[in-house]
Amino acid sequence: MATVELTFSALPAHVRTARLVATAIARRTGVEESLLDEVRLAVGEACSRAVEAHRAHCPGEPIRIELRDDSGRFEVTVSDQAPSDEIKQERPLDLGMLSDSFMSNFGLAVIEGLADDVEVFPSPKGTNIRMSWPAAVGV
């Protein structure tokens, strides 16, 4: 059972709120203090990516976050409803190819670099990004 579920409209201003909620639940769930920055950033990246996708495809639909405390792990799932472009593989860094407006590949790279365990499930009906970190104490 999810500890907390949160939905928010696809506005950049709400991403900060989602980060703060996720960090607060992670702390309460017993995630180590040293990992909280990583939780905050990874959840923020996933939410930013979802907001960009919704603004492009379905701005009226909400984005959903589930925060769970399961078997000693703190698990976060960010779900969007935008049809997924194929998740692109990382390529060698080429400054000329980088866009300053939509850095989705960077976002996923950051999430993969920060979360202890990451799974990305793209589909025509949306993308789910599930991330987890060890939690010392269940609540």
Partner: peptide, 19 residues
Amino acid sequence: DFLDSTGLGVLVGGLKRVR
């Protein structure tokens, strides 16, 4: 206090412009 990939993108964009 906080920097995400959107911020990185802005810095990269700035770098491209000055270069």
